[in-house]
């Protein structure tokens, strides 16, 4: 229902409804409307759906869950062989 991809804000221009960012998606550059993420600045990653940034990626949360999954590997369940 909603393909949304994270990209890095390269530059920002305009304001309010027209606040727009040049956003880099692994080499693809797109103009993205940033009016719904006023807190997002150049260098931030935003989640973009149909040309609209709908959230700023929380880099702390993003790393925390990865670390949590890595530690799972060392936990007691780790011994259970994956069939």
């Amino acid at each position: 229902m909603c393909l949304a991809i994270p990209g890095r804000i390269v530059s920002i221009h305009g304001h309010d409804l027209q606040r727009t960012g040049r956003v880099n998606f692994s080499g693809v550059i797109r103009d993205v409307n940033l009016s719904c993420v006023p807190e997002a600045e150049v260098g931030d990653y935003v989640l973009v759906h149909v040309g609209l940034a709908i959230s700023r990626v929380d880099e702390v949360e993003a790393e925390r869950i990865l670390e949590h999954w890595r530690q799972m590997g060392e936990g007691p369940e780790a011994e259970g062989a994956m069939s």
Partner: peptide, 10 residues
Amino acid sequence: QDAVRGACEL
């Protein structure tokens, strides 16, 4: 290629 992968994701 990375840029091709990026475009496909989008």
